[in-house]
């Protein structure tokens, strides 16, 4: 699930604290708020290890300072944090003097007026970097009209990234299709529609739900980060409430959907699976009845 990133006023003191020692970052000089930034965690070889995160933070800061987006103060910012023209191991007073000289300011003016702004700028860059690393397959990809053709670069990374988006789109297409059918079933039940119509729609919902589950398995197997490996049920759950099934029943439905080109083939593949059919369709009526009863009881109490 998406996590809220830290606020500017949490990160600024952490950057200020890190500045006392400068680069390279060591675990004791880095606050948790910095080591927990998404961009840092994503870069760490072992995200569970503090030393690995500190190394990742060091690389993040070096990359950020090397591309500091302010030509006037880029060299000063690098010196302040201990990169050339300053040197590792120099104390803050020495680095500040070097940074002030790079910026062409008197050192006290630099410390009071410029340094806080540079710290704030570094902080913003760290937060922007963290934002770039936000990943949540539980949010459907945002779409917009393409102003021009979008050719894919001939590059294995680009191929993988593109295929990732293809799978993500298929996944969300399947989840929305399942959601539509699940909503239709609930609407028909609410309308007291003909039981045959409800059953037919419930079977369509089963096909769509199982197709979404098959896509979720395919997506998580191929593309989801390891921490989301067990999220198939979480992904399918965003389609809406579905009848509770055993793992074996869910697998059987998924298998039938994965091998079926359309609803008819799905139904044919499950021919004779009466218990499974009853477990799926019956739950809609049971669930509906118990919900109506609760509603009625609540009405009597009020």
């Amino acid at each position: 699930m998406p996590r809220k990133g830290p606020a500017l006023d949490e990160v600024v003191p952490a950057v200020r604290r890190l500045l006392r020692r400068g680069l390279p970052v060591i675990p004791s000089s880095a606050s948790t708020v910095l080591l927990d930034l998404r961009g840092v965690v994503a870069r760490a070889v072992d995200p569970a290890d503090v030393t690995s995160r500190a190394t990742a933070l060091d690389g993040t800061l070096r990359g950020l300072l090397a591309r500091f987006p302010d030509d006037r103060y880029a060299s000063a910012a690098r010196a302040l944090f201990g990169l050339p023209p300053a040197a590792p191991g120099q104390n803050l007073t020495v680095r500040r003097a070097a940074a002030a000289a790079e910026a062409g300011h008197e050192v006290h003016h630099f410390r009071k007026r410029v340094e806080p702004k540079l710290i704030e700028k570094v902080t913003w860059e760290l937060l922007a970097d963290a934002d770039r690393f936000t990943r949540s397959p539980l949010i459907a990809p945002r779409l917009a009209p393409a102003p021009a053709r979008q050719p894919v670069q001939p590059d294995p990374f680009a191929w993988e990234v593109t295929e990732h988006e293809e799978h993500l789109c298929r996944l969300w297409s399947a989840i929305y299709a399942a959601r539509a059918e699940l909503l239709t079933v609930e609407r028909l039940i609410s309308l007291h529609a003909d039981r045959t119509d409800i059953l037919r729609t419930a079977v369509t919902a089963a096909w769509r739900w199982a197709s979404a589950r098959a896509e979720a398995i395919s997506y998580t197997t191929g593309f989801a980060p390891p921490q989301l490996e067990a999220s198939v049920s979480e992904l399918v759950a965003v389609a809406g409430w579905a009848p509770p099934l055993t793992e074996a029943q869910a697998s059987r439905l998924t298998e039938a959907a994965a091998g079926a080109a359309d609803r008819e083939q799905f139904v044919a593949a499950l021919h004779g699976e009466t218990d499974l059919g009853n477990a799926w369709t019956g739950a809609f009526f049971t669930h509906s009845a118990s919900r109506a009863m609760t509603h009625e009881q609540n009405g009597q109490q009020s």
């Binding site: 870069r43 993040t60 770039r132 690393f133 990809p141 779409l143 917009a144 979008q150 680009a158 988006e165």
Partner: peptide, 16 residues
């Protein structure tokens, strides 16, 4: 686009 975001992420991971 999701793809563009990922491409930027790839870039930063290569740098790291």
């Amino acid at each position: 686009w999701a793809k563009d975001r990922e491409i930027r992420r790839v870039h930063e991971l290569i740098v790291q």
